[in-house]
């Protein structure tokens, strides 16, 4: 699954200049594609536009005015209401869970990727570990959620943020190892050799050679996994129950259940949960988009 796309997402980030330069001239404008492009953009933007304008409407206006017309007197009332409904603490929970899961996951994955690339030739064990992670890519989280629930109960971690962190961490590992090992493998052998000649330990080589050279890949993996954990829903749903332990997607869902008639407030909560990601997206779009295709090569 991975090799066939090895080059694809690379192209998404850095297009090969030679292959591209002349093609737009060569073909006349693709009307069908252009039409589809604009229509789909409209399909994507309409709901987003609607969320934003509605979140500034008063509840009474929502029922009384045309849904697509922006409010004549925008109000921040909904945002105030949402912020007063503990959204700040859900936000903090989400940050704790995301950082707590993704930081360690990428660290241990990087170490494992390094070990697999450097040691597999001599170690049957490491080849086995690599095979296990490749197989792990095929395990859907949903399918093993029941034993995870049991395990978390046995560990007496039910209804804690740790209960969300541990499985999220573990399930971020296979893909991270796969992507990072592809990158560590690209570090020229001579550099490893010269580090060894200089007397560096493997641990030193990991940090002083492999880490700087694979830093962009590490950032990409961090972003991709961060997004996955940030948006995670099933783990918090199953492994927590008290409102104090809610992360944003779950809080959004229960808020919607509780205030289903107050659509403007519900949509304000949608905007607020999405804002951090959108900010990141605006700041680092390239990195994020390559992050989204991280699983498919390098």
């Amino acid at each position: 699954m991975t090799t066939m796309l090895d080059n694809v997402s690379q192209a998404a980030v850095v297009p090969p200049p030679v292959a591209r330069r002349r093609r737009p001239r060569l073909l006349q404008y693709n009307w069908l594609g252009g039409l589809a492009g604009w229509i789909w953009l409209f399909v994507v933007l309409l709901p987003i536009y609607w969320i934003v304008i509605t979140s500034f409407k008063l509840q009474e206006d929502y029922y009384a005015t045309n849904p697509l017309v922006p409010p004549s007197s925008p109000t921040l009332e909904n945002y105030r209401f949402v912020l007063e409904s503990d959204f700040v603490s859900y936000f903090i929970n989400s940050v704790i869970v995301t950082v707590g899961a993704v930081g360690p996951a990428v660290l241990v994955s990087f170490m494992a990727a390094y070990a697999i690339v450097r040691g597999s030739a001599a170690s049957r064990f490491l080849r086995g570990v690599n095979g296990l992670f490749l197989m792990g890519l095929a395990i859907p989280l949903q399918a093993v959620i029941i034993p995870i629930y049991l395990l978390i109960i046995k560990l007496q971690m039910y209804d804690t943020l740790g209960a969300i962190i541990l499985p999220s961490l573990a399930f971020a590992i296979p893909l991270s190892v796969l992507v990072l090992s592809n990158f560590v493998r690209d570090v020229p052998k001579e550099l490893f050799e010269s580090m060894r000649m200089d007397g560096a330990t493997e641990w030193g080589t990991l940090w002083r050679l492999a880490f700087p050279l694979t830093r962009p890949a590490i950032v990409t993996v961090l972003i991709y996994q961060g997004l996955t954990v940030w948006n995670g829903f099933i783990l918090p749903l199953i492994l927590t129950q008290s409102p104090e332990q809610r992360t944003l997607p779950l809080a959004l869902w229960s808020f919607q259940g509780q205030y289903s008639v107050n659509i403007p407030a519900v949509l304000a909560s949608v905007v607020l949960t999405t804002l951090p990601i959108l900010t990141l997206y605006v700041l680092g779009r390239r990195q994020l988009l390559s992050g989204l295709t991280a699983g498919f090569g390098k």
Partner: peptide, 18 residues
């Protein structure tokens, strides 16, 4: 192989467990 094997352990243990 021997000198780097340990680096694979933390990831392995986490993934085996969960």
């Amino acid at each position: 192989g021997g000198s780097v094997t340990w680096m694979a352990w933390p990831a392995l243990v986490a993934f085996l467990t969960f």
